[in-house]
Simulated assay, not measured.
Amino acid sequence: MRYNPKARLDRSQVDNRRGSSSGGGGGGFPMGGGGGGLKVGGGIGGLVVLVIIFLVQSQLGGGGGSTGSTDPGATGSTSLDQCRTGTDANQDPDCALVADVNSIQAFWAEALPQQGGPRYTDATTTIFSGGLGTGCGNATADVGPFYCPTDKHVYLDTTFFKDMLEGQLGAKGGPFSQAYVLAHEYGHHVQDLLGTMAKVRTQQGRNSDAVRLELQADCYAGIWTKYATTADDSGGEPYILDLTQDDINRALDAAAAVGDDRIQRKTSGRVDPDSWTHGSAESRMRWFSTGLSKGTLEACDTFSARTL
């Protein structure tokens, strides 16, 4: 994976709140079972909206641990002022995160209306450490990356990549596995814009609406991956120059690592499909691959699929 040295990064799409912790505990964030989820009251259509998160760290017995050099923020500045071009993205993990967000949003700004959806509006990614108040309650480091439809932000404690994704979950990691995580969360933003979250009625189970929402976000991440090298900055320069098969394999590996069955087997030694909220490792890989191969919103209609 190489970022284009000529690409200009838009730092305004990422809000760096690390070191400004304002939250503690899990107030406002009732935790779900299975693969993890957040329930936020008073959502779309007056229903309780299931705001799907990528992983609930507390399921795995808590967080902690040291941060490795491949973790965004581990070696970078506490500011993002250093992130100006693709050259910076190739050298600094914080800037790589900015480039990924820029690329994902540039793609959907063009693709969403082209494929029959509404006009795309940007969602800010907020990176934090420790704890932070959000439109969906107080987020802490115990919660993995998630999208909040109330304030239209993606939230990410950057220690997740090294401590959880690569650490407790055993994923291979790497820059594109991190890009997949972001693309998945922005898939939820696209669902929010399309009104898909209103379809969520059942919140647990192999074929539940919650699982269908999650797998669709994986599929949307695959769509972006298919066209990632065509997403341009305001000057027409692509953010990403190339992706290798190894990049794709690492994204698939990350998708498998956060499958409900894989997490349950690691934590309890048994698999309970009735409690799933995100889908199996096989399903997550398959729907990511569907988006990658087909490249359309229509192909990602998990709510109509008989087999997940």
Score class of each variant (00 low, 15 high):
Tyr147Ser: 07
Tyr147Met: 10
Tyr147Lys: 05
Tyr147Glu: 07
Tyr147Arg: 08
Pro149Asn: 02
Pro149Leu: 07
Pro149Tyr: 08
Thr150Met: 03
Thr150Gly: 03
Lys152Phe: 11
Lys152His: 14
Val154Trp: 10
Val154Ile: 15
Leu156Gln: 06
Leu156Cys: 02
Asp157Pro: 10
Asp157Lys: 04
Thr158Phe: 01
Phe160Thr: 05
Phe160Cys: 10
Phe160Pro: 08
Met164Leu: 09
Met164Pro: 01
Leu165Cys: 13
Leu165Trp: 07
Leu165Arg: 05
Gln168Gly: 06
Leu169Pro: 09
Leu169Gln: 14
Gly170Asp: 13
Gly170Ser: 13
Ala171Asp: 15
Ala171Ile: 07
Lys172Glu: 15
Lys172Arg: 15
Gly173Leu: 13
Pro175Met: 06
Pro175Val: 12
Phe176Leu: 08
Ser177Gly: 11
Ala179Asp: 03
Tyr180Pro: 03
Val181Gly: 03
Leu182Pro: 06
Leu182Ile: 11
Ala183Pro: 06
His184Ser: 04
His184Ile: 03
His184Lys: 11
Glu185Arg: 03
Tyr186Cys: 05
Gly187Ser: 03
His188Phe: 07
His189Gln: 09
Val190Asn: 02
Val190Tyr: 07
Val190Met: 00
Gln191Glu: 13
Asp192Val: 00
Leu193Gly: 09
Leu193Glu: 02
Leu194Gln: 08
Leu194Ala: 04
Leu194Val: 03
Gly195Tyr: 12
Thr196Arg: 00
Met197Lys: 02
Ala198Thr: 12
Ala198Glu: 15
Lys199Trp: 05
Val200Gly: 02
Val200Cys: 02
Arg201Pro: 00
Arg201Cys: 01
Arg201Leu: 08
Thr202Asn: 07
Gln204Gly: 12
Gln204Ser: 14
Gln204Pro: 00
Gly205His: 10
Arg206Trp: 06
Asn207Phe: 15
Asn207Met: 13
Ser208Gln: 01
Asp209Phe: 06
Asp209Gln: 05
Asp209Arg: 04
Ala210Phe: 05
Val211Trp: 08
Val211Ala: 09
Val211Thr: 09
Leu213Met: 15
Glu214Thr: 09
Glu214Gly: 06
Glu214Ser: 14
Glu214Phe: 01
Leu215Asp: 04
Gln216Pro: 00
Gln216Glu: 11
Gln216Met: 07
Ala217Gly: 04
Asp218Glu: 12
Asp218His: 08
Tyr220Cys: 00
Ala221Cys: 01
Gly222Glu: 09
Gly222Asn: 06
Ile223Tyr: 06
Trp224Ser: 05
Thr225Gln: 11
Thr225Asp: 04
Tyr227His: 11
Tyr227Leu: 02
Ala228Ser: 15
Thr229Tyr: 09
Thr229Val: 13
Thr230Asp: 10
Thr230Arg: 14
Ala231Arg: 01
Ala231Leu: 04
Ala231Asp: 10
Asp232Ala: 13
Asp232Pro: 01
Asp233Glu: 12
Asp233Ile: 10
Asp233Trp: 11
Ser234Ala: 15
Ser234Gln: 13
Gly235Glu: 15
Pro238Trp: 10
Pro238Asn: 13
Tyr239Ser: 11
Tyr239Ile: 08
Ile240Gln: 14
Leu241Pro: 09
Leu241Arg: 14
Asp242Thr: 14
Asp242Cys: 01
Asp242Leu: 09
